[in-house]
Amino acid sequence: MSSSDKAIVVSKVSKTFEFKTHKGVRGFLYPETTAVRAVDGVSFDVPRGESLAFIGPNGAGKSTTIKMLTGILQPTTGTVQVLGMRPLEQRRELAMKIGTVFGQRSQLIFNLPLTESFRLTASMYRVQRAEAAKRVEKLIGQFDLGEFVTQPVRKLSLGQRMRAEVANALIYNPEIIFLDEPTIGLDIVAKRALREVIKTVNREQGTTVFLTSHDVGDIEEVCTRTMIVNHGQIVLDAQTADLKKNYLRRKAVSVVPIAAWLDRSAPAQWAERAKIADVQPEGKDGRLLFTVDTTKNALNDFLRELLAQIPVADMTIEDTPLEDIIHELYTKDRQ
C-alpha cells in the first residue's frame, strides 16, 4: 500500500505530560515534576476509506491520540502524518480536510436554527454559497434533519443534536472524520440512526472514520477494524468481525422468573435449580444471572433449554461489558 493510500500514519509516538509535584510556594521552592506517559510508543496506520474504532477505558490514551492526530497536541517523540500532513505544523491546512465531532463539546450555535450553524461552518471552510446550499440540502435528507432544521439548537433532543453535529462536520466534505464518543448519552433509537448515517457516509463517500467510543454497539455496527488501547499502548488491533468471534464470546443473560417459581425454594437454592447445560447462574434480587460462553453453548440452544425449565417473566441479554474484554486483553497482554 503506498503512502498516498494511507489517511493516517503514526510511527512510534509517545506523549508524556509533566505536572508540578507541588503547588504554590512549595512548588516554587521545590520545582519537581511528575511525568505521566499517556501514549507509549504507538505505531499504526489507517488506510483511506477505512472505519476504525479506537477504544479503551478512561485514561487509556484515546483522546490524547486524537488530539495529536488533529494537531492540538505535539507528540513527545515519534511522528504523526494525517493526509500526508504534519498535524501541528499544518494545523489550519489539515483542518480544511478533517471533520471532528466531540460528543461532549457542541460545535453548533446554541440559540440559532441549525441552518445558521451550517452556514457559518460552510463559511469557515470556504465552501462556495451555492455549493454549501446543495451540500446542506443533501445532508438534511441523509441525516433526516428536515423536521427540526429551522429550530434553535437549544430545543433539539440530544439525538437530534448529535446527528446535526455530524452533519455539520461533513458540510465541507472532509476526507477523515474523527468522532469522539458520538453516541454518548443517546437512547437506542438515536444511536441506531446515528450509526446508520456514519456507515452511509463511510460507504458512499469513502470518508475515513476514526471513532472512539465506550459502546460496543458503535464498534460492531460502524467499524470494520478495532484497535484497543490501554495504558497508552495498543493492546489489540484486529478486524471487528474477528474481535467479535474471538472475544465477544460471552453473553450475560438476566432472567426474572415468575414469582411462583421463585417461591418454591430459598434464594440460595435458585442457582442450583436453574442450572442449564454447563452454565451455573448467580441468584440475586429475584433475578438469575447467567454468563453464557457462546463458544461452548450456542445461545439459541441455551435459551430453548432455559425457557423449557424456567417460567420467565422478564429477560435481558447483554454482551460482555467492553471494559471486561479490555481488562482481559490487557491482562493477557501483560502476561
Binding site: S4, D5, R48, G49, E93, M96, K97, S123, Y125, R126, V127, Q128, E131, Y172, N173, P174, E175, R203, E204, Q205, G206
Partner: peptide
C-alpha cells in the same frame, strides 16, 4: 462503493472556492 484515493484527492481544499 468505496471512493478511490484519486477521487478523494479531488475533494477538500482544492474543490473549495477561496474566499
Amino acid at each position: 462503493m468505496k471512493a478511490t484515493p484519486s477521487k478523494l484527492h479531488e475533494r477538500g481544499v482544492g474543490q473549495l472556492t477561496r474566499r
